[in-house]
Design a protein around this nucleic acid. Structure first.
Length: 775
DNA sequence: ATGACGACTATTTTT
DNA sequence: TAGTCGTCAT
């Protein structure tokens, strides 16, 4: 049994305390590069190995599929190392290959396969595969277990259709994009259409409610859910059905949440329900053999546009703690040692983030020596900027044989910024990969193929059905389709029912009768074999027998060839999925496909230069990082200028970028840049000024830094109004009314307060500015 | 029923 | 600028 502690030896005291945590609530405040993934994975291993927890009772929620996969892999590795010594009394690396393989497959079967590790969305979709048929929405609508998941573009066109065709609204006044955002926001706050209306009773709110209603009706008619529903429906189901909640509460005895600062209201609600069984009285909570363990860093909260709310993290201790005097220290651990970056880089990051007011104070301690200074480069335009970056990469490679192309990352604010870098990399014959942006599953041919599978799995999915009805062309025209759709709407049945009834088809459709019947027969053949035929086989045969492949072959253009290749790539992906998961469920595959981004496909150690947005870069690290486009209007993004809260989020984004670098960091900006077809003059990002000059070498000869002195006078002015605040202070705010201070947010030079107002929730206020006083 | 062309517009980040 | 959308002509 002594061998079981070998992984504990690799931890610092705080990490070890976190890993050893067994029952009850714990918040781990984990700075960038402080080894939080290690703490998470080792804790899971520790729960199983030491506390003998059944893997089936562990729920670990991550933010991306990639993080989930990595966590599984690392858990497997930890187990393999422990078991190698226990079983063979040898280190894992010294075992024969077949022994290693055996060990890993055993671990997969007994451990990893049983663990509930995944994103909120994938875990919820799994729960819904069991229980969605027990759910009724407020209008009594129901869903079946074979529900489809609508992707973004499906949702977009559905909503657009409702606005223009059904409700015949002015597209200018109600654009699909913003209505969709509004509906998504409502769902993420847990609001039904009726509840939304109550909060937004004015004209615009009424119309949006109407669209929301209709949208829900159509989702139900398609037996489909959108991304938000995947979380919202389990929450509703748990609220309306005690025994279902009881079942899952009992299932998930140990709950772990990664990136807790990125959770939103409804995700929090899900975690709360599962963890507390919705027992309102804290004294009744039974932590015996149960835990809730969350890891996060408020400074890396960059998803507020997706309703992420890091005050949820700030509230963790009061939400889940017992409130006893020593609760604060018992339920929180800070990981402050950074194992990733050189001290220079860390100092820059610390100074930068100090300018934020909304944060928990946290000092990252360097463990890796000072390193080279940061280099700041000012370019005339984005072409020169790209040239500089690529030249530097070449230079680095020449001078440092230990680096490969995979050691470099170019990080930017928006996908659109990748272009000039790509061009140069191509010209220089440097291998690179772009992460994010266009998704594999967003390609037309892939969506077509997936739509075939969706209709096989869920014939009510009219959105998918309409997509493939005349794809490839089989002579079913617009008018025919329209009358079929009208018929289905009038009868209130799914389009598929009309199509599969020969009498109806021959009555409604003219010339197209024959092809429709043929099409329906084809699909029916495979529907009948859904349990017996491998998914990949279904896909391939459908693509062949529908004539999809033939049509692409006939075209013979380069584009068509590409598409063809992609269809076969999809086939391979399905094969691999079936192999990996040992599942032949078409629904499992479709869920995975709908919920995967190509961030997940990023393969590390590929020896390619990585290009990606700052958002995609979270959680990654590279020896050499180029953070480009540091200009006002680029980073911080134009839409954040003028709004202090948004600027803070942009600053966190910049902070995430800076903290990706291990050895060397480059910051670049341009004097002018092409924006929407116009050349625009650019001034350096305010964030550049916030990084201490002594850490930076630059190609800019005379530095104009008047601004920093301005902001420091402003700061000293603010501190004069400083009073010392304490948690529990009651205040009166001239707009929000009476409230209570729940947190002191010390942000270096500024201090903010989190104040809870009854009915309004928690707000973050700057006491030196806000119209408030202590009472 | 299909393709081509031109006009238009939208500019953030993603499960 | 570039991608999308709709209209027009075939």
């Amino acid at each position: 049994m002594t061998t079981q502690t070998s992984y504990l030896d690799q931890l610092n005291p705080s990490q070890r305390r976190a890993v050893k945590h067994f029952c009850g609530p714990l918040l781990v405040v984990a700075g960038a590069g402080s080894g939080k993934t290690r703490a998470l994975t080792y804790r899971i291993a520790h729960l199983i190995l030491y506390h003998k927890v059944d893997p089936e009772n562990i729920l670990a929620v991550t933010f991306t599929n990639k993080a989930a996969r990595e966590m599984k892999e690392r858990i497997e590795k930890t187990f393999a190392q422990e078991l190698a010594i226990e079983k063979y009394e040898q280190r894992l690396e010294l075992l024969k290959e077949y022994q290693q393989k055996q060990l890993f497959s055993q671990i997969y079967k007994n451990i990893t396969k049983k663990l509930w590790i995944g994103t909120f969305h994938s875990l919820c979709s799994r729960i819904l595969r069991y229980d969605i048929n027990k759910y009724r929405d407020e209008k009594g609508r129901t869903w079946q277990r074979n529900f489809s998941i609508m992707d973004d573009s499906d949702v977009q066109s559905l909503i657009k259709n409702i606005i223009t065709k059904q409700l015949k609204l002015d597209e200018k006044k109600f654009e699909a994009r913003s209505v969709r955002y509004e509906i998504s926001k409502a769902k993420n706050l847990g609001l039904s259409p009726a509840q939304y209306l109550r909060e937004n009773p004015e004209y615009k709110g009424k119309i949006i409610t109407e669209i929301y209603e209709e949208y829900q009706a159509q989702l139900a008619a398609n037996n489909a859910l959108d991304f938000d529903d995947l979380i919202l429906i389990p929450v509703r189901l748990f609220e309306q059905n005690e025994s279902i909640l009881g079942y899952w509460h009992n299932q998930f005895k140990h709950i772990l949440v990664d990136e807790y600062q990125d959770t939103n209201r409804i995700q929090y609600e899900l975690i709360r329900l599962l963890s507390t069984n919705d027992e309102p009285n804290k004294k009744e909570w039974n932590w015996k053999d149960r835990s809730i363990f969350v890891v996060g860093d408020a400074d890396q909260s960059i998803y507020s546009f997706r309703m992420a709310d890091f005050t949820i993290l700030l509230n963790f201790q009061s939400d889940f703690g017992d409130g006893l005097p020593d609760d604060d220290t018992r339920t929180m651990i800070k990981l402050e040692e950074n194992y990733r970056s050189r001290e220079n880089i860390l100092q820059a990051a610390n100074k930068l983030i100090e300018n934020n007011t909304q944060r928990i104070d946290k000092i990252l301690k360097a463990t890796r020596g000072i390193g080279d200074t940061i280099f700041c480069y000012r370019a005339d335009n984005e072409e020169i900027e790209a040239e500089f970056v690529i030249n530097k990469i070449k230079e680095f490679r020449r001078n440092n044989p230990e680096l490969n192309w995979g050691s470099f990352a170019i990080l930017y604010r928006m996908n659109a910024h990748s272009r000039p870098f790509e061009d140069r990399l191509v010209n220089s014959n440097i291998p690179y990969q772009i992460v994010g942006g266009f998704k594999f599953y967003d390609r037309q041919e892939i969506k077509d193929a997936i739509a075939y599978l969706k209709v096989i799995s869920n014939p009510s999915d009219t959105v998918s059905l309409l997509r493939i009805l005349n794809t490839p062309r089989r002579g079913i025209g617009k008018t025919t389709i329209e009358s079929l759709v009208t018929a289905s709407q009038e009868l209130g049945v799914p389009l598929w029912e009309i199509l599969s009834d020969e009498t109806s088809v021959s009555t409604i459709a003219g010339r197209a009768v024959k092809s429709i019947n043929q099409f329906v027969k084809l699909l029916q053949t495979f529907q009948a074999q859904i349990e017996t035929l491998p998914v990949a086989e279904i896909l391939l045969q459908l693509m062949e027998q529908s004539g999809y492949i033939a049509e692409l072959k006939n075209k013979g253009t380069e584009e068509a060839d590409n598409r063809l290749a992609n269809v076969f790539e999809l086939y391979n992906a399905v094969l691999k999925f079936t192999e990996d998961t040992e599942s032949n469920s078409i629904q499992d595959y479709l869920a995975t496909a709908s919920l995967s981004s190509d961030l997940d496909d990023l393969r590390e150690g590929q020896e390619k230069v990585s290009l990606m947005t700052l958002h995609s870069a979270k959680g990654l690290e590279f020896p050499v990082v180029f953070l480009v486009g540091l200009e006002q209007g680029t980073l911080p993004h134009m839409r954040s200028l003028g709004d202090p809260l948004s600027i803070e989020e942009e600053r966190r984004l910049c902070y995430v970028g800076v903290t990706r670098a291990q050895e060397q960091l480059f910051l670049t900006h341009t004097k002018e840049r092409f924006v929407w077809g116009n050349r625009e003059g650019k001034i350096p990002s305010q964030f550049l000024e916030e990084i201490p000059q002594e850490l930076v070498t630059t190609n800019v000869k005379t530095k104009t830094r008047q601004n920093s002195s301005v902001s420091s006078t402003k700061r000293s002015h603010q501190t004069t109004k400083d009073i010392s605040w304490e948690v529990g202070d009651r205040i009166y705010h001239s707009i929000f009314g009476e409230g209570e201070v729940t947190h002191i947010l010390a942000g270096g030079k500024r201090t903010n307060l989190a104040v809870k107002f009854s009915g309004l929730g928690q707000k973050i206020l700057d006491p030196t500015v806000a119209p408030m006083e202590r009472i």
